[in-house]
Computed example of a mutant assay.
Amino acid sequence: MLYKEIHIGELIKSKTEEMEVTIRHIAEVFRIPEHTVLETFGKKELPTGELLKWSKLLRYDFFRIYSQHLILYTPQYANPVRKKEKSQLMQFRKNIYSDELIEFVLELVRTGKKTKQEIIDDYRIPRTTLYKWIAKHQVTSDL
């Protein structure tokens, strides 16, 4: 899956087909007309409340797709020096790498599509983290 361009409607449609959930069932659960369900499949973006409903119905975390996008494509900025005030928002770990992401990166190394340095540069994965993944999963590459 490409995390750079996200079309959430297509992903929801794909998961719906995979789980064999009917449009009629979805319309009844959400209490909306069937044509509205079909319109949702064409939307590139959805409000978070609506996306949460879809995540619950299809038992799939669609928000993780956006988290993966942030991990792969957002540059890391230096933390500001002042840390006097605590944020009101929940604090998350700095980097969360899902199993899917680790497998994706290791597959790039295995197949030789990208060198280790390209992965470090393109996805901003720390060198030590990449090498720990490779050692843990015994990846062999010809590079």
Rank of each mutant, 00 (worst) to 15 (best):
V21Q: 07
K114C: 01
Y73P: 09
R124A: 14
F41D: 12
L101R: 01
L51W: 04
Q88T: 13
H137I: 00
K114R: 10
D61K: 00
H137N: 03
E5A: 12
I8R: 01
P33I: 10
R124I: 10
Y77A: 11
E50K: 03
L11V: 13
F92V: 08
T115G: 13
T22W: 06
I65Y: 09
L2Q: 08
K56R: 13
P126C: 05
G9Y: 07
A78G: 10
V105I: 05
H35S: 11
T40R: 02
I119H: 05
T48S: 13
V37L: 01
M90F: 12
I65T: 14
M1H: 05
R82N: 14
D99F: 08
Q138N: 03
E100G: 13
H137M: 00
A78L: 14
D61S: 02
L46H: 07
I32N: 02
L89E: 14
Y97K: 03
I32H: 03
I102L: 02
H7G: 10
T36E: 07
G112R: 00
T48M: 09
W133Y: 02
I96K: 00
E45N: 13
E85I: 01
K43L: 12
T74N: 12
E100F: 06
I8H: 04
G49Q: 07
Q88K: 05
H137L: 01
H137F: 01
R93I: 15
L130H: 01
S14P: 02
S98Q: 05
E100S: 08
K136Q: 02
P47N: 07
E5Q: 12
L108G: 04
M1P: 00
L52C: 10
L46P: 04
K56D: 03
K116G: 05
V139S: 00
R31C: 10
E118A: 15
F30T: 11
E118R: 13
R127F: 06
I119K: 07
E39H: 05
I96T: 07
Y97C: 09
W133K: 00
K136W: 00
Y66E: 12
K56T: 12
R31A: 12
H7F: 15
I120F: 06
T111A: 04
R64M: 10
L57P: 06
E39Q: 09
F62E: 09
N95G: 09
D122P: 06
Y77L: 14
L57E: 05
K53T: 10
R64I: 07
G112M: 03
L46S: 09
T48K: 11
H25D: 13
K114Y: 08
S55C: 03
K114D: 00
V29D: 05
K15I: 15
R64F: 03
D121T: 15
L46D: 13
E107D: 02
E18I: 08
I119G: 04
E45L: 09
K53R: 07
K136I: 00
S67E: 15
E100D: 07
